[in-house]
């Protein structure tokens, strides 16, 4: 039987941007900036999900696969060094199977003080079509795998390849996950209506995601860098009225290519020197938001 499809999923109440209570970030900063590297593992020959193909070409799609494998062999290391050099920790969108396949990358991120949240088991396994038990299994797998590999308990969720079911948000909240990166309705955090617990939507971004920049908008590396600075300038200015959030979602196989990393480094240098940015991890931003907006966690 087909699932009921809702016109309005009822995630939140409408809240106009004008006239909101003031959010204040630590140190009087106006814009909370967080960097979200996607540390992923894609399978060469995954099983087919009936609702979405993993690769556009017959397996092996070696350009698609190899491009993404560049991340773990080459570009993660390049991107991570640049982030550390300018004082930006990562809040990692993690294909948790990377802990099994390539623990070197996960250990490196952990050693740099980065925070992990789940981006599913693999970025080639999608939630579409899962029943509740199957969805619980990938949430439990995520929590267990990251805890075993890093000692961290994941606090956030970005659905694998952005694939959801209508019950995902209720389920992750039931498991004690504090934030979701899957909702794009605002430049400030929002509490989401869930059956159990408290779930906060932290602004992630598709629009300034490097994937959109380079493959939807076809920007050159310097155009993308300029886009990030414009995004930051606007949000830092608006944040004087009420603190804003800017996320820079990255894929090292894109931003870590040799023609892109130099212009990107200039963005981090700019934001770090500006003085209005609270450079933070996702969990810290959610904690600050919650401390100011009250209510039990």
């Amino acid at each position: 039987m087909p699932e009921q499809q809702l016109a309005d999923p009822g995630l939140y109440d409408y809240a106009p941007y004008r006239g909101r209570p003031k959010l204040e970030w630590p140190g009087g900063k106006t814009c909370a900036v967080w960097v979200a590297p996607n540390l992923e593992f894609y399978e060469l020959d995954p099983p087919q999900n009936p609702h979405r193909k993993s690769w556009t070409k017959p397996h092996p799609d070696i350009v698609g696969y190899g491009h993404r494998d560049h991340a773990n062999r080459v570009s993660h290391w390049r991107m991570a060094d640049v982030m550390s050099r300018h004082g930006f920790p990562g809040s990692v969108s993690l294909s948790v199977a990377l802990c099994n396949h390539i623990p070197e990358v996960v250990e490196d991120a952990a050693a740099r003080g980065w925070e992990f949240f789940s981006h599913g088991i693999y970025n080639t396994r999608y939630s579409y079509g899962m029943d509740e038990a199957q969805e619980r299994a990938i949430i439990e797998d995520s929590i267990r795998t990251v805890r075993d590999a890093t000692g961290q308990t994941i606090r956030g969720w970005l659905a694998p390849a952005l694939t959801h079911t209508p019950r995902t948000l209720d389920l992750i909240s039931e498991y004690g996950i504090d934030y979701t990166c899957d909702l794009y309705h605002d430049d400030q955090p929002t509490d989401i209506r869930v059956k159990n617990g408290r779930l906060t939507a932290i602004p992630y971004s598709l629009e300034v995601n490097d994937h959109y920049g380079f493959f939807i908008y076809n920007m050159s590396p310097r155009e993308y860098a300029d886009t990030l600075i414009r995004q930051y300038e606007r949000l830092a200015a608006e944040g004087e009225k009420s603190g804003t959030v800017m996320c820079i979602p990255l894929h090292s196989y894109l931003i870590g290519q040799p023609h892109r990393i130099g212009p990107f480094e200039e963005v981090l240098r700019y934001i770090a020197a500006d003085g209005r940015a609270w450079i933070a991890r996702a969990g810290e931003i959610v904690d600050s938001y919650r401390a100011q907006t009250g209510g039990a966690a």
Binding site: E3, P47, N49, Y122, G129, D131, Q134, I138
Partner: peptide, 11 residues
Amino acid sequence: MTLDPTYLEYP
């Protein structure tokens, strides 16, 4: 809806 159980196996 449900997926084939092998979809959650990772050989």
